[in-house]
């Protein structure tokens, strides 16, 4: 039986991780709208959403047929790969080892590429622009679908996780509709750091659950693991940042 110690982190993880992905998709759809207008942008994005819905409808029920232990271990290992990848990158970005992701720069690059494509293929410009929006929505959307399955499937939390993801999409669309600009002020690295911490904690928890580990405190152990990964991540940022600035002393 799930309680709020697992439901709340699942909703939060799905919301924050989806926020990052939806912002990235929104940047490309906005670039398409800027270059060719809203019609191909909306058509492409809507087609992408339809394809995503079909993928979920076709593959979603298959999850119920997988034995819970196998599902927990598989999802746990995938979460470890996914969460620790994000956490590693966020730590290195926070420590200044690799540059921060720049949504404005991504928008400019996408706009320039689209303008170039439109010049070269003028007759098919709307189609190609719509395809770019479609691709962005499908690619980022599949990541959102995975995130929802990963944080939700281990203990029947698909619905709360879906609600978290849907809330992220609604928030990005609402803010995007108001500002009509790439959402460059979203603190992407802080989000990735937080999501990396939560997904890594879920990864360890689900893998252990699937292998029969009796976690102390049961579901509350998720919060303990979140705290442990958070402290480790912050300590690594401090250590690596110190080393990065050492030569300048």
């Amino acid at each position: 039986m799930s309680n709020w110690s697992t439901i709340a982190p699942a909703i939060t993880a799905a919301f924050l991780a989806s926020l990052v992905e939806v912002v990235e998709a929104f940047t490309i759809v906005l670039a398409v709208a800027t270059v060719r207008g809203w019609r191909p942008a909306i058509a492409g994005a809507a087609s992408g959403l339809v394809l995503l819905a079909l993928i979920v409808l076709v593959f979603g029920p298959a999850i119920d047929r997988i034995p819970i232990g196998v599902l927990q271990v598989s999802i746990g290992v995938l979460l470890l790969l996914f969460g620790m990848r994000w956490l590693r990158k966020a730590v290195l970005r926070a420590a200044g080892v690799i540059p921060l992701h720049d949504e404005e720069a991504a928008y400019r690059a996408e706009t320039t590429e689209l303008q170039d494509t439109v010049r070269r293929h003028h007759a098919r410009a709307d189609w190609l622009a719509g395809l770019a929006a479609f691709k962005a929505v499908v690619v980022e959307g599949i990541e959102v679908v995975f995130i929802v399955i990963a944080v939700g499937a281990g203990r029947g939390l698909i619905v709360p996780a879906s609600l978290g993801a849907a809330a992220a999409a609604a928030l990005v669309l609402l803010i995007g509709a108001l500002v009509h600009r790439p959402l460059a002020r979203v603190p992407e690295n802080a989000l990735k750091f937080g999501v990396g911490v939560m997904l890594s904690a879920f990864g360890v928890f689900w893998t252990g659950e699937g292998l029969g580990v009796n976690w102390p405190g049961e579901d509350l152990m998720v919060l303990g693991l979140v705290a442990a990964f958070l402290l480790l991540g912050l300590a690594l940022v401090a250590v690596v940042r110190d080393r990065s600035v050492e030569p300048a002393r």
Binding site: M84, R88, L92, S200, L211, V213, A228, V240, R243, E246
Partner: peptide, 29 residues
């Protein structure tokens, strides 16, 4: 024992994270 599995999982994943980050840090001059 399940406790050993749990300890191995927690320590292993944290150790791997620390190792990969420390390997990626710039070498001090």
């Amino acid at each position: 024992p399940p406790a050993l599995t749990g300890i191995l999982l927690v320590a292993g994943s944290m150790g791997l994270l620390a190792d990969t980050v420390l390997r990626a840090r710039p070498k001090a001059k």
